[in-house]
Each structure stands twice: as C-alpha cells, then as structure tokens.
Design a protein around this nucleic acid. Sequence first.
DNA 1: GAGGTTCGATTGTCCGGACAAAGGATTGAC
DNA 2: GTCAATCCTTTGTCCGGACAATCGAACCTC
Lengths: 254, 254
Amino acid sequence: MPKPAADRALSLQLGVDRSSPVPLYFQLAQQLESAIEKGRLAPGTLLGNEIDLAQRLGLSRPTVRQAIQSLVDKGLLVRRRGVGTQVVHSQVKRPLELSSLYDDLEAAGQRPATRVLGNTLEPATAEVAAALGVAEGDEVRRIERLRLAHGEPMAYLRNHLPAGPLAMADAELQATGLYRLMRSAGITLHSARQSVGARAADAVEGERLGEPAGAPLLTMERVTFDDTGRAVEFGSHVYRASRYSFEFQLLVRP
Amino acid sequence: MPKPAADRALSLQLGVDRSSPVPLYFQLAQQLESAIEKGRLAPGTLLGNEIDLAQRLGLSRPTVRQAIQSLVDKGLLVRRRGVGTQVVHSQVKRPLELSSLYDDLEAAGQRPATRVLGNTLEPATAEVAAALGVAEGDEVRRIERLRLAHGEPMAYLRNHLPAGPLAMADAELQATGLYRLMRSAGITLHSARQSVGARAADAVEGERLGEPAGAPLLTMERVTFDDTGRAVEFGSHVYRASRYSFEFQLLVRP
DNA sequence: GAGGTTCGATTGTCCGGACAAAGGATTGAC
DNA sequence: GTCAATCCTTTGTCCGGACAATCGAACCTC
C-alpha cells in the first residue's frame, strides 16, 4: 500500500536575512507564526525535524529550536519527542496580556473615548498606601475617568499613582490609555496582581454609568509593578456587566 | 570612599547532582527559585555573571542560561544587558494557571466539597455543540455540581464534555475536581478560552446558592482544549459575588 | 564642573557537535 | 493472530566556544 505523503511543511518559502539586525531565530519565528495565522500551515501539520529544517535554512539547530520554542511558549506549536513538532489545532488568540481597556476597545473596533472626571494630588488613604507601598498620607495622584464606547458609558476607572515626576495632563488622558502614557514615560511594566469580582451598583455608580441602582457591576482591582518591583499604579475599576466582560485565553504550564 | 560590597549572591550552596535523572538546568532553577522564595536571595540581589556561575557549578553557560531563563519567564528574575541578572523585587505568586476551583479552594485552606446535582448523557444543544465542536444533537455528558466551602455554597458549576470513553462516577466527582479527573484519564490540557462577566441572580439560581433573587453573580464560561486542539470541556459557572472573586497575577510579555 | 568619550562588564545571539530519552513502527517469537 | 522485543526517528539535554550589543562607570576634554 502506498504510504500517504507525510503531512509535512516542506515548501514554505522560509528564509532569513543575515544582514538584518533582527535576530535569526526571531525572523524564523515570525515567518512561522505568520504562516500559521494565514493558514499556509494547517493545524495538525508536522513541521519536519529540526535538523533538516536547520540545514535547509542554513541555520544551526539551536537557532531553529529557539524559534520553535518561542512559538511553543505562545501555544501555537506542540512538540512530542519521537514524533515531531505539530501545529496546534485550535483557535489561539492572545494569552492574556496586561492590556488597558482603551487598547482592548480600540482593537475591537469600538471607538473608545475618555471623560476625565478628576486628576489631583492628594494624601494616600490607608488602602491606597498599602497597595502602592508608600506611607499613609504621602502625596499620590488620583485619576478618575469615565470610559465610553460609541458614546455609551462602559466603565468608571479610578487610579492612584505614586506622585512621581511624570505629569499627567488631562488632554493626554483623554486621548489615550494610561498604560500607553506610562510606557512612553519610560516605565517598563512587568507584572500585575488582579482581582475580579462583582457587586451591585449603588445610586452614585448607577447614575455615572447609566444603570439602575442595584444593577450588577463587574469590578477589577489591579496593582501594577515595574521591573524593579515597585508598584507604579493601583486601579479600582467598575464595568457595566450588561455591556462588558473579560475575555482571555490562557495556557497550561507544562 | 570604599565601595560597598557588591550585592551579589556568592555563597549559596548551589550544586547539581549529575547522577539524577532530573535535568541539570531544572535542578539549578529549582534551587534558585527556592532560594528566592525563602529569602536567601533578597529582592534586588544581583545573581553574578553567567560565566562565573557556570564555572563554579561545573556547568556550561547554556545550561545556566536555560535555568535562569525559566525563572525569567516565571517573572522571578530580570535580566539587563551590561548589568546582570537581578531578583525581582515584588510579590510574585502564580501567573494565572488553568486551575480548577476545587484546587484553588483546597490550596486556600478552605475545605471544598461537591454536591453532584446531575450527571447524564444528553443531546447537545446548539450552544454546547458550537463550543465543543461537535454536531448539534450529538450525545454529550452534562454535569451539574454545587461547590461548597465550609458547608456554604460557593458556586454552581455546569459542564459539558464530549461523550467519550471516560466514565465519570458521581463518587469521583464528589471527591475531587473535574480537571484532576480528566488529567488522570490521560487528557493533556493545553489551553482554554475564558470569559468572565457578571449578572443578577434569578430566583432558581438564588435558591441554589443561598442568595436573594437579583443578587450580583460572577459568571465564567470556559472552553478547554487538549494539545491536539480538540475541545474537551465546556463550563458555564456562576459564583456568589459576595463570597468569591478571581485573583491572579499576570506578566507582561516583553 | 559639565559634557562627551572610552572602556570594561554582562547579557544576547549563533555555531557545531554529542549523547540520552521517548514514541512509533517494524520485526520476530509463540 | 497476538504479544513482546528491537530498531529508527525525533526531540531533550548538554557542552565549549565566538562575537555583537548594550549598559554603567571611569576618564578626559573643554
């Protein structure tokens, strides 16, 4: 019986540019990722063994492995010893990044807008001081915003930042998200602790968000740290449950 | 002025066992992680350069790098070219795993219990069929459970699984979590798509969970995939917002 | 003293090779 | 035919080395 042609990714027009400053493994990873995304590498396809792949590309095996490993970490590929590397068969989107609501809405095609309700310096309450790791009474910046999509209120956002050198103009806060502002101010975000819950709206919250009192709200508290481990932001947000939910994908750590 | 002694991790009693079947890089990573966890490596400490570290341990630099890299991926270390590798300065816990409520409660010291309300085979509705990727009307297993902690209801869990060979005895479902059962049945979980929202309880839900009608509930829908990309579970859960919230930590992808 | 320059330290990338371990397929024994 | 032993393929781990890119600090110039 003639063996069916192996389900391999042979002619994919892969190739790297050695004069580019982009690392070789990264170039390869990008090409593979794009091939998977565009369907040129169908789910379930075997990638072909690493040694051949390296030889055909004129790369060493460690370089090819590094490229493959990065896609395994993203959940796009699966390796099995003795079998090979296979394109994962499912709808992988984004494995839950630390994203701002602004960027999320923008990516979803909603047109986000921000109404700045407050932007002041004030002494830290006990709760804020504990979250940010500063002394109670220290000056912190308090920002209150209403986030809208298509003109409809979506969420009420309250943030506290350590009163650092970075000035936050209301105009900037209206035009973009807080995270983008912080990043462009040279802060490298590293990790965040989040807590997601629900509660009923009180009268004031209902008024702000256009919901009746008692309506269910989705709440999210978050403390964000930079790579030195200092807290750089404490957010306390409420979302209209009727109009918003958190969607994300997560991977199992092997 | 005498320069203060470099804040280095020198004498840490690191060492690997070459006769062990555990990979060397993994042994080293474990030792470093435990040293960080136990405070023997204080936040901010420089790890010392990779070459020396390798030489002192009798390892090659790639092996040491692999160990360090795995901790960087976990968010415990930060690397900076020209500077060194530093212990991250913050409270890193768990970067959001695909965990079951049962395990979460158990780890938190709550004593979880399960009341199995239903465990039947029935034809898939359109919604379930779409989530699991089977044909409408195909037989699927429907499991309904009430999860309790300290005797109090915490959540109502409804799951649908493809009607595979794996039999689910009520006794097993009572004693442990669904994920643990699936794993021990040889299913390798790979990724999941989740959606977290909130809504008001209706009368039936309120009754089941011991909340008044209209109380805010936290909802979570999840489709879990194995490493071949097939959906292996569709869950539709509601939690008492007054007693439960999702807590997790997430890292920024560089 | 202020500012730019050079230099050492450290990680980032890449190479080529070697052997071990696991999974699947083939072969052989019964 | 069924089951176990064997072989082959493929990834996993590990080594040693080389050069480039980046950061911080010391140094020098003005």
